[in-house]
């Protein structure tokens, strides 16, 4: 059960293989990968910069994991969230979850990623060729969390 906030890129296949080996008796292993899109509102993205309030992010993450583990019966998880500069098509987020049955794993990932979108203290800025823009929180993301609580 590990959480990493890191600047370095990572290989999903490598992480998945290792996690899968550690959890060889699990009936289900599910992964989610969030990536940087190459464009937004028809503007080409050069890279994105992710700023982080690490101390709060880690504390809040531990609290939501505690809550989700009480809600869903999961065996193990791995979360990797990058910060700093990330280029289009690179991975930003990886969540892998092991559980006895698939439904618990799918729901754990869905609830966690919905929560990350509106609660974890990370901020994304998109850099374009000639300018840059801080990404605004989507109303639709906020509504999902309110509904699911």
């Amino acid at each position: 059960m590990k959480i990493f906030f890191q600047k370095e890129s990572f290989l999903v296949e490598e992480k998945f293989k290792k996690f899968s080996k550690t959890n060889s008796t699990a009936g289900s292993i599910i992964s989610f990968v969030g990536k940087v899109r190459p464009t937004n509102n028809k503007k080409s993205i050069t890279n994105i910069e992710i700023e982080i309030y690490e101390k709060m992010a880690l504390l809040q993450m531990k609290k939501i994991i505690f809550k989700l583990k009480k809600k869903y019966k999961i065996l193990d998880f791995l979360i990797v969230h990058r910060f700093g500069k990330v280029k289009p098509q690179e991975n930003i987020l990886l969540v892998i979850v092991a559980s006895e049955h698939r439904k618990e794993g799918f729901r754990f990932i869905e609830d966690l990623v919905d929560w990350l979108k509106v609660k974890i203290t990370f901020w994304k800025k998109e850099n374009y060729l000639n300018d840059s823009e801080w990404i605004e929180q989507k109303e639709s993301d906020k509504k999902i969390l309110i509904t699911s609580n």
Binding site: G34, I50, Y53, K55, M56, A57, L59, Q60, H81, I92, L93, V113, L116, K117, V118, K119, I120, T121, F122, W123, K124, W134, I135, E136, Q137, K142
Partner: peptide, 29 residues
Amino acid sequence: YAVNCEYVNIEETVKDKDELAIFPPVTGG
């Protein structure tokens, strides 16, 4: 707003030893 890493509202009371963080809505994930 967050005081000592916990979300609070603008009415919250703070004291000298606290760490207050102020930020726009987050965009992680």
